[in-house]
Simulated assay, not measured.
Amino acid sequence: MATAASKDASNRLELDIRPLTPVIGAEIHGVDLASPGITEQVPAIRAALLEYGVVFFRDQTLTQEQHIAFARHFGDLEIHPATPRKQPNREVLRIVHGPESRGSENAWHSDVTWREEPSLGSILLAREVPDVGGDTLFANMHAAYERLSPEMKRWCEGLTAVHDIARVFAKRLGKSVDELHEQYPPMRHPVIRTHPETGKRAIYVNTGFTSHIEGLADAESRWLLDRLYATASNPEVQCRFRWREGSMAFWDNRLTQHFAASDYYPARRAMDRVTIAGDRPFFDPEN
């Protein structure tokens, strides 16, 4: 009788998986994500996501409806507050930069950590890309955690950080901090979180949304956060993906951070993102 582990291994063998680095990222070839038969490959894709942190696909021609349908295989979907209310397919967040809008996602972050239940993952599809530039970098924050000293791990594992939507989106959405906090109050999450599926521990603070660490003086909080932020900048925990039209990236927000290089200005880059809802971060001291 086949075990669950052997079934997972069999599923992985059905996919043409090509790792990008030893610690994060893999391209999956020969898969049509718009195919009616994609349902049968979802368990293998999910297993690859958990193993590599981010998986990439090339030459995908999905409509927005097909993009949404593929994402629904992995859970309920979120609607981002930056999505226009009158837009059809509100599950799709369109991210466009060009001559009148320089890219502003060029800082290490994990998506929507200001939510009570931040996202499981995001699926980004390239609709239009510059001839050169606009790569996205991804960092494995479990690998970053493993590079901390034992004493630093023990200290950080007992700490809680505050994540605040207003740090990024007050200006972008044209709202006051108080307005945003009425709908999305600042959230407390562990500095080190336990992955709910793999049990791996990962650094869970980011430059975009983390405001401070509770219980520390302001100077102490800034000092520690700066050092934890810097762990994502180590090339040995990263991979880098060069986009082409029709390329798709699916990353695990519970494990990774990403950095969208904004080196292509004033060229145009247009991407569609669909985000899968997650659960509340936690730290398991026994795992």
Rank of each mutant, 00 (worst) to 15 (best):
H181C: 04
M187C: 12
T198H: 05
E78P: 02
N140H: 03
G215E: 10
A143T: 02
A26F: 02
N234V: 05
S247H: 03
D263C: 01
P118A: 12
D32S: 13
P285C: 11
E116M: 10
G53N: 07
E40C: 08
E236S: 12
I213T: 14
R85S: 12
A217T: 11
G30I: 10
N234P: 00
A69N: 11
R127H: 09
G246T: 00
A2V: 05
A139S: 14
E27R: 01
A202K: 01
H29S: 09
H142E: 03
P235C: 09
V96S: 02
V54S: 01
I68Q: 05
A170L: 07
G215K: 12
A267E: 14
D263P: 06
N11S: 05
E91Y: 07
P185N: 09
P266K: 09
Q60I: 10
G246R: 01
M1H: 02
Q41R: 15
Q87L: 10
V42N: 10
M152P: 00
I28G: 08
A260C: 11
F56M: 10
F250K: 00
H97D: 04
S35W: 01
T275E: 10
G75C: 06
I95D: 02
P130N: 03
G174F: 08
A170N: 11
Q257C: 05
Q41G: 00
A202E: 03
P43I: 02
Y265G: 01
I165M: 15
E214W: 13
M187F: 00
M271C: 08
A107D: 05
W108V: 04
N89R: 13
V205S: 14
H163T: 06
E151F: 10
R167I: 15
I17C: 02
Q257E: 12
N287H: 14
H258Y: 11
P186G: 12
V96E: 04
G278Q: 08
S262M: 02
K153E: 00
T3N: 02
A230C: 11
M1Q: 01
R280V: 12
V112I: 14
S104A: 15
A260G: 15
G30Q: 11
E91F: 12
M152S: 01
N253D: 08
